[in-house]
Amino acid sequence: MTDQNEEGIQGMLNQLVSLIIIVLIFAAILTFLALRVYKDDSFEKNHIAKDMALALEAIQTGQGNTILSYTKYTDSYSFAFKQGIVQNYKTQEKKLPLDFMAVSSTFSIDQNIKFTEKEMNHTGTDIHPNLIKTGNNLYAETPDKEYNLNLHYYEDINTSTQPKTYTFSTDSKDEQFKEYVKTLTNQPGYQFSYKEHTDTDFVITESKENIIYAPQTKEKRKLASIIANKLIEKGENAAILPSGNERFTIKIKKELASQLTSILQESFKQYYETQ
């Protein structure tokens, strides 16, 4: 009888200890979850990751060059990009296993556009990361020197963006027109040089109509299209015709001569950015 009682008491004690341990473990886990959820910024991370994913999809939709400065949520969030996935995490969490702490969102990739896997840091109000699509390249850029993405972009993706020296000449007898053409030289960014003879890359001539005679290569036709578009943007008509040689001949209305510098500067800028 005594043995049975002792065994019964022992059994009850075991059950009680088990129950206490289970309650303690459950309470500990719930406390962890409650504290984590309370302090946790999962909602914000999720929102930012989705927002960035949508921005990446939208930027692929745009024609030509698009630069999106991502200026939102500058309170210490960072991004990591993989193919079709954007991860968002707090910058101080970076040392922890990223996949565990980060919130991910997926985005569609247009296979016709190269997505450059770069990490984009987003660590302060003065740092505005950019999502950039130039031609068939899509990449993330940040001024953060740690990643030096600007440098990588120009080195890795496109080394042909260095402008060469272009020579200009005019066969116009009008002194004012000649002066306007000469102002193309020594402009910042691109190296233009003026010559007195017509054996140059561009011959600028005055005309009643705006006509661009372009050499028949794809790249040069593209440059001609950009120049023509710039003229059209200014409310002018412009035609593109094939050139019989390797040089451009730009026939331009005399009254537009004063805007020639800005038209060509903008055109070259756009041309190089879409290379």
């Binding site: 989705k50 999809e57 939208a58």
Partner: peptide
Amino acid sequence: TYDTEFYILNTKMMYSPTG
């Protein structure tokens, strides 16, 4: 965000050279 995703898909297909 399905509405926005659908809008982006529409825009891409209608206006983009890769659409």
